[in-house]
Design a protein around this nucleic acid. Sequence first.
DNA 1: ACATGGTTTAACAATATTGTTAATACAAAT
DNA 2: ATTTGTATTAACAATATTGTTAAACCATGT
Lengths: 217, 217
Amino acid sequence: MLLIKNIMDKKEKTTTEQLILEAAEEEFLTKGFDGARTTVIAERAGVTHAMLHYYFRTKEQLFERIVAKITALVAQTVLAAMGDPQKPIVERIRSGVASHFDLVAAHPLLPRFFLNEVVLRPERYNLLNDSLKERISALFMQLQTEADRAAGAGEMEAVDMRHLFLSIVSLNVFPFLALPFAERLLGDLAGDREKFLAARKAEAIETILRRIQKQKP
Amino acid sequence: MLLIKNIMDKKEKTTTEQLILEAAEEEFLTKGFDGARTTVIAERAGVTHAMLHYYFRTKEQLFERIVAKITALVAQTVLAAMGDPQKPIVERIRSGVASHFDLVAAHPLLPRFFLNEVVLRPERYNLLNDSLKERISALFMQLQTEADRAAGAGEMEAVDMRHLFLSIVSLNVFPFLALPFAERLLGDLAGDREKFLAARKAEAIETILRRIQKQKP
DNA sequence: ACATGGTTTAACAATATTGTTAATACAAAT
DNA sequence: ATTTGTATTAACAATATTGTTAAACCATGT
């Protein structure tokens, strides 16, 4: 019976195919496409490297499976940076910075992978079709309108939301890219990882809030 | 006569060795160590790939020549971000942000290369010896003291200079990492590259200055 | 002219890396 | 029990990539 077989598959597949995918994610995430070796991935998965080709045919196809997963996660963090649409704009920005930071902190290897493997191969991974571009554009327009209204009402300073967005992502993402370096450069700063991350999060929030704060003069 | 020969060398060496170095810089900078191919480098330089090995023995040795150059440039931008020690602290920070941005803008490929090839290979490129670490630490301590004094005098808000420094670098560097992506995501924002860069520079300066601005209430 | 020494070439060697295939094991269905 | 199809293995193939070498080249100094 087919149903039974499928159920079996779903239970059993926790083995080879999954093992390869997990090993591949680890390897690709840390070493990139060029640096990763299919033989190493197979070793880490504890299977012969012929298995890898049996399940995924080529290195590229295996890689694309990983790219798809990572891309979905990145999209999540981007959306997070836009904040909760329910709240008023200033609070929306504050919550956006905070939750975006948390998401990046939960996946610190993502940024580098995404930058190297997706951003720099626009021809291969063109995940920005026109309809998506339009939706994003509309989203920014909506944000901008709301911000302009709030600025008119004296609730915040007038800002270009696209630049603000880029600043948020910069402040939240770059420290994770630089972390291995910063930890050696500023030993005590990063001495306690927990403390350092909490401080960075607070710093990003404070910096962005001050950026949109209405000037008193 | 040896002197004459050396002079000749310096004139002639604009050929093969230099050609290889230039091609290697281009390849390593855009593709990284793993992605670069010595054969391609040789082709680009217009020499046989045996020449590459003749002058640099191995791919690694050639690579290290490039790393040395890039590292020096990165050190420059880091120093630039510290601003002109002559000026008062607030102006020092403003000029630091500006000149750091300009340096990064002049070498937009550096950040990714440095992150991938140097930051992530601490064992191979340990360019942070203890004496350098101490000097940097002292530099930050000095900056902090000056900032604390200015804060006490009501000239600026009290801040952790190391965090401020990291924010400056984040705001200035990340946009260049994300540029290829941002250009497709926010077409009109990056429509005119010149305008976009000018706006980013102004945005970074404004953001940092507001961060250190004394609150009125 | 000749010797010297750095430069260049072309062909080769060695290895790494990806991908293929034929034979086999194994589990499920009929 | 036989068939069927997937999973697995081991050995091989093909190519890419780095690195080596012997011989030729060429400018310079003697």
